[in-house]
């Protein structure tokens, strides 16, 4: 049985939180650089500012966006791992506190959804655990901004709505979100499973490496078609018009009930913060 110390987990979480908030993924950067020359209007100027902002943020270790999110953590723990030195939940929460303090990241969490007093340290995080065979420990940190989170939607379609029902709802979600979700966005889609699983799948879809298609050619084609349709809306960077409204559509699917067709659409802004690490 492999032992992992909670102090190492906390340090890793802190490091990942800061990196996710100050560095954009190389795939996002490459995609924006490629799109920039194709857009002579306001949208192109916005892309240029986004690229410049990424450089400043990285070199000065400043957050790319002032909204450094509420931290969503996905942990994949091997069943042969033993966590020692304290509680795993607390270690992750401590890591968030440390990262947000030392990284000068914004504290954007309120303790109660109605009474709304800021917790002052960006804790608690939202933690999802998955137990897998082996002795690995994999952690993904996704500090989720709420400009895009607020524009996300979930619907329980019926089987008869079919693939067209899915496409229409995804497209409608992006159009309603418009500039609020900070385009060019990443569109995470969860289809099937149950009410809650569709939402978790949509969130996980935002974590997929940009440019990787769904392994099933049927769904890969739906992703490609939706991306084209979304980019025909001319919403554009920051909603100011242009060809790049979304950088990717990522779909995750799961088996579902004979009566159901759950569908969740989680939008990620043009920063789409997330970082992963192993221990």
């Amino acid at each position: 049985m492999r032992e992992i110390f909670v102090s190492d987990i906390a340090a890793k979480v802190a490091e990942l939180c800061v990196r996710a908030c100050v560095e954009v993924s190389p795939e996002i950067r490459r995609l924006m650089q490629a799109a920039r020359p194709l857009d002579a209007g306001l949208g192109g100027q916005v892309l240029e500012k986004m690229l410049l902002n990424q450089e400043i943020a990285k070199s000065e270790r400043m957050p790319i966006c002032q909204d450094t999110g509420m931290v969503v953590v996905f942990v994949r723990i091997g069943q042969d791992v033993r966590i020692v030195g304290g509680s795993l939940d607390e270690a992750i929460t401590d890591g968030v506190r440390m990262g947000y303090d030392k990284g000068f990241l914004r504290k954007s969490v309120v303790e109660d959804p109605i009474r709304r007093v800021n917790t002052g340290d960006n804790a608690p995080a939202i933690i999802h655990y998955e137990i897998v065979p082996g002795d690995g420990f994999h952690i993904t940190v996704s500090p989720k901004g709420f400009g895009s989170e607020n524009m996300s939607r979930l619907v329980m379609l019926v089987p008869a709505d079919g693939i067209e029902g899915i496409k229409n709802f995804v497209l409608e979600t992006v159009i309603k979100a418009h500039s609020n979700a900070c385009p060019p966005i990443i569109v995470g889609v969860g289809i099937g499973g149950s009410f809650e699983l569709s939402a978790i799948m949509a969130k996980k879809a935002l974590l997929r490496k940009l440019g990787e298609a769904h392994p099933d050619p049927f769904w890969a084609e739906v992703e490609a078609e939706l991306l084209v349709k979304i980019n025909e809306t001319n919403i554009g960077p920051a909603g100011l018009g242009g060809r790049l409204t979304a950088m990717a559509v990522h779909i995750n699917t799961y088996a579902t009930h004979i009566a159901g067709l759950p569908l969740a659409v989680n939008l990620g802004c043009h920063v789409n913060r997330h970082e992963e690490g192993e221990l």
Partner: peptide, 13 residues
């Protein structure tokens, strides 16, 4: 006025 979202390190200048 609309300001551009998510170019916040640049705007701080």
């Amino acid at each position: 006025f609309a300001a551009i979202g998510g170019v916040a390190a640049l705007m701080s200048k």
